[in-house]
Design a protein around this nucleic acid. Sequence first.
DNA 1: CGTATCATTGAGCTTAGTCAAAAAGTGTGG
DNA 2: CCACACTTTTTGACTAAGCTCAATGATACG
Lengths: 221, 221
Amino acid sequence: MSTPEKEPREGESVTERLAPHAETIRYRRGQEICRQGEHAEHWFRLVRGVARRCVVRPDGRRQIVDLLLDRDFFGFTAGREYEYSAEAVSGEAAVARYSVRRIHELIEADPAIARAILDLSFAAMSRLQQQLLTMGRITAREKVGNFLVEISDRLPREQNDRVVLPVSRYDIADCLGISPETVSRSLTDLKARGFIALVGTRGLSIVDRVSLREGRHIQAH
Amino acid sequence: MSTPEKEPREGESVTERLAPHAETIRYRRGQEICRQGEHAEHWFRLVRGVARRCVVRPDGRRQIVDLLLDRDFFGFTAGREYEYSAEAVSGEAAVARYSVRRIHELIEADPAIARAILDLSFAAMSRLQQQLLTMGRITAREKVGNFLVEISDRLPREQNDRVVLPVSRYDIADCLGISPETVSRSLTDLKARGFIALVGTRGLSIVDRVSLREGRHIQAH
DNA sequence: CGTATCATTGAGCTTAGTCAAAAAGTGTGG
DNA sequence: CCACACTTTTTGACTAAGCTCAATGATACG
């Protein structure tokens, strides 16, 4: 097999093949890309900005199931309808949209496309599992620490390994199933302990990646 | 499209097509089906009993990422290695095992197989998302209530809508990221409030499915 | 430059974790 | 069939973590 460790190469080739079939659509912050319950006739790929895939609960609370960054695919469903909504987070977001029917035709015509799409779905599954692992941590501090490490690995680095958080504390809270206040307190805490450094409200650099990943944050204040 | 609402039919036909390529293996309770970090050369389908897909954390705690019941597929990975272990829960479990390489060949040969496998992976993703939503609930009582509803929907019904929980309280705790004591307390509580009925330690019937799903459990004792 | 959103911090209260022990099942061999 | 050991489950008491409500500061945006 000549497939490399990660899938930039195959990813590229599929999107090249898929490109002629894509419509690109722009969204402003908060606009819906797809809606929970709606007939699922498209798959999507984020080509600019940031989006969130979320579910609204009966009690009105929102849970973010998947944070979508540049080049992430989404829109896969087991049934006929979307089981979640997706909306733009950043002011300027754009998605490439593919007709599911059309893609099924492409699959019929070329099994290589099928393989590639399977890999895309595995990538989405892997994100989901990572999210699950982060949420499964015990303390809020661990959840936040782990979240920061995970997202900073997916984000482009500025100088000094600095990244810019693409979401608000509220979004982080909705990702982790904790309150925004607790997110804020955990950040302050992780900073005070020297695990991370904050630059303004959105700038972040991870100082002690290993400890954050392993969750060994000495307790007590 | 002639595909029905859910996928028993397509599911059947794929597994029929896949059957000649499967090895069936039996496992006793606690035995490993695949191991985290191991080269991922097989996909699996549980054909008997119950299994759990889990991740062991640096701190030694175990998190169950996916409970596997009869006919569930698993073993999908984004990279080359399994990102989790899977092990038999019940004394007598059996899995059908498929070579990934062989399946890739089948995909090359027949796009219908490709489509079907894509659907299987979407089903796995859907379970994962459901798991995430259950874990995202706020209170332990809600988590447990939701877990019971979800699993009872996947389990075969005995008389009176009764189901038999296939896992211990410890496993439930590891699924939900809470302590076993809290699982036990939540069960006692849900029973006292009349949302569920317990028969012995494993027998369960859901009395008020809607309330459990929506998470409206009036608080205070 | 004002207004809305987002972020931080504080105080009190509730929930769930921990440690510990008792009770209820389960299985084994005599 | 019963006794014994082992595992699983339940319950209690205590502690600590995080949620809620509330107020103040900071940022971003028109």
